[in-house]
Amino acid sequence: MVEKNQRVSRGIIENQNMPRSWRKETKPHRFCPGCGHGIALKALGDVVDELGILDQVLYGCDIGCSLLSWDFFNFDSIQTHHGRTIPVIVGAKRARPEIVGIAYMGDGGGYAIGAQHLVNAATRGDRITAIVANNTLYAMTGGQMAPTTLPRQKTSTTPYGRDPLITGSPTLGPELVAAIASEGSYVARGTVGDYNKLKLFIKKALLNQMEGKGFSFVEVLSTCPTNWRTGAKETWGFLQGKMENYFKVGELQVSQGNRLGEEG
């Protein structure tokens, strides 16, 4: 699971070789120790390096802990509003189809406040790449329940644990997107617990956009030791045990109801 030049320390995978697309001047980054956002963004940085697309990327980050990445990379970036990163990137991509648009957000941004944008960008087949970091709660605002909070998981607004009878079951983002996305879309769920697979999924998602095939979507199972109130071992345990058990890692087949170009 861990690459040769990586080491595990306090539950974080750190790579001594920073991606070239990472901005040195803004490192060390502002995420908490053990945070999954940094690993997800390392995978993104490595992929941008491998594809050599520094000058083509427009990166949008949401409000949530992802906002801390507004000056994280050496490519052009914009911090948007909570839930509004997808439409900003869609608007840019529609206006200039040659750019590679990346919308990076949390599970609250993707599945709650911005759900309408995710659903509609997927059905329209917008040629952008949306990446949602699922850490099972609203991290930035103090660990409240998110659409992805697991049954019986305690958060600041579910002090006795999430009761599915009252607040429903966790949103299955990639399953939702796969069911509605238009033909040619790419959908996967990766985890910061399997770096190589995550990187592969993000790479395929960007290539899918660059080839003009359709909407590309990757959910990343991510860690938040600060709000989970977990040490290194428990953090990894929650990710690879509870989360990966509930949210299945892998690529998803797009059901594809819309047939492009077919006239009725």
Binding site: L58, G60, I78, T80, H81, R84, P87, V88, I89, V90, G91, A92, K93, R94, A95, R96, I99, Q116, H117, V119, N120
Partner: peptide, 25 residues
């Protein structure tokens, strides 16, 4: 171009995306 968006929130933010990359939206 023209895009019919999913709501006015999206219309406003897509506009900003277009303006960001140099188009009159």
């Amino acid at each position: 171009g023209f895009l019919q968006t999913e709501d006015e929130i999206s219309a406003g933010f897509t506009m900003l995306g277009g303006a960001l990359v140099g188009k009159k939206t």
